[in-house]
Amino acid sequence: MGSISLQNVSKNFGGVTVIPDISLEIEDGQFVVFVGPSGCGKSTLLRLIAGLEDVSGGVIQIDGQDMTRTAPAQRKLSMVFQSYALYPHMSVRGNIAFPLKMEGADKETIDKAVNNAASILNLTDYLDRKPRQLSGGQRQRVAIGRAIVRQPKAFLFDEPLSNLDAALRVNMRLEISELHKKLKTTMVYVTHDQVEAMTMADKIVVLNAGNIEQYGTPLELYTKPANRFVAGFIGSPRMNFIEGDEAKKMGAHTVGVRPEHLSPSKTEGLWAGTVGVAEHLGSDTFLYVHVDDVGQITVRASGDVAFHSGETVYMTPMDGRLYKFDAQGQAI
């Protein structure tokens, strides 16, 4: 079983602090996603859990055991790398079998486990190929296969889909989610893509500059962002932020409202503005509206709405969908 617990973990490289102080509990069997902008320390945090880097301070427990100083090989974790990191000189079979060979498993066990993993991942026909003969998606599956055969306590994924094209990415996302449902093993997944985070995670850790901004379920982050950073990072298109007098009228330093929570109208509403660009996607319509004294506001209306560039539009936030933040960016 694989619960992971970080207590006051910190990391410096030379004189640079990448992670000041992080404590985090990951429960057994959960799918946890670390998300944040590039350079926020999410990959470093994953490598600390993996043991590929030493912590500068704090304790890492896996399954209740202190693993802070344990070598990566002994942590019983599996990792899927962004570059897939397949062994180029081994066949697919050799790649998947490698962790078991290192454990000293007998040939029969290895064959069984490899065939099993290959059938789960649709790799049976490719077992004797070399990695360079595979497509990106297939390589990704081999990397996952290599991770699952040794039945690790937890899987670590380091931006595994970022080298795939958009269509394949959606597919692999589903496959990984299904895999998690099937295996019920703890997964820790690093990405900068909040859509991946929202769709896959049981719980999301939003990281910024080495600090945890919020830790919660995708819906919690969406409906109750702890601060302006999370509010802005989660959700697409991005939340609109309004500062200054308009915000003060509502008793906050900043107010935020998501584009999908604004009802557009041709006749009346809280704010009035001029449509700059209207994007008609069919299922949705995005309006980029200039509002005097407020700035640009994005509106997402479902269906095809008949607004066009240059027209005046009135917008009203839906009930209870207005977020207020203080001067420090904390939610009020």
Partner: peptide, 25 residues
């Protein structure tokens, strides 16, 4: 380096890492 780190994650000792992964590559 990724590939060597992958072997470490896969449970290879330093000796195994050099013999089975680095040297053949």
């Amino acid at each position: 380096v990724d590939i060597l780190e992958a072997s470490r994650m896969d449970g290879a000792s330093l000796r195994q890492e050099i013999i089975y992964v680095l040297t053949p590559m």
